[in-house]
């Protein structure tokens, strides 16, 4: 297993840029193409934004831990917080067309995470620790073309 990478940020949106740069570098080094790396970066941004807005309800001084665990063909990112739990069962995949035509803003982040990644898992201990795991598998079509 390759080395685990960890970044801890405070729960403020001005830290999102730093998170994106951290994830982009790790994804590129793991072997993902720029396009695939951008998808991973966006999914992590969405997960962190949800933590800031919903788990911590915009409190600026809480912590978010981002762990990147590269292992053979599996690139896993965990986003961990100690805020309000989010019930993933309550976030159904929206009927996108209907959702958009009613101009509803919420729920798009969860939809994007599930669309951009191969697997999204939730692990919650209410009041103690919430974790969202974003997983993408490195396949030849997602790798940087070599030649």
């Amino acid at each position: 297993m390759a080395k685990k990478l960890t970044k801890i940020i405070q729960s403020r949106t001005d830290n999102l840029l730093e998170v994106r740069e951290f994830v982009m570098l790790a994804a590129r080094q793991f072997g993902f193409s720029e396009e695939e790396s951008s998808k991973i970066v966006l999914a992590v941004d969405e997960a962190c934004t949800n933590v800031i807005k919903h788990a911590y309800q915009n409190a600026p001084d809480r912590s978010i831990q981002i762990d990147i665990m590269p292992d053979r063909e599996t690139f896993q990112i965990s986003i961990i917080d100690e805020g309000k739990s989010f019930n993933p069962n309550s976030a159904k995949m929206p009927d996108l067309k209907q959702h958009l035509s009613s101009f509803r803003r919420g729920g798009l982040g969860v939809y994007l995470m599930r669309t951009l990644m191969d697997k999204v898992e939730y692990n919650y201990s209410p009041g103690k620790r919430n974790e969202v795991r974003l997983i993408k598998y490195l396949t030849p079509s997602k790798s940087e073309a070599r030649g």
Binding site: R20, L42, D45, E46, T49, L100, F103, R104, R105, G106, L108, G109, Y111, L112
Partner: peptide, 12 residues
């Protein structure tokens, strides 16, 4: 770069 927070502004 754009995330869903940015897209949400257009919808709003």
């Amino acid at each position: 770069y754009i995330s869903s927070a940015g897209l949400g502004v257009f919808m709003a």
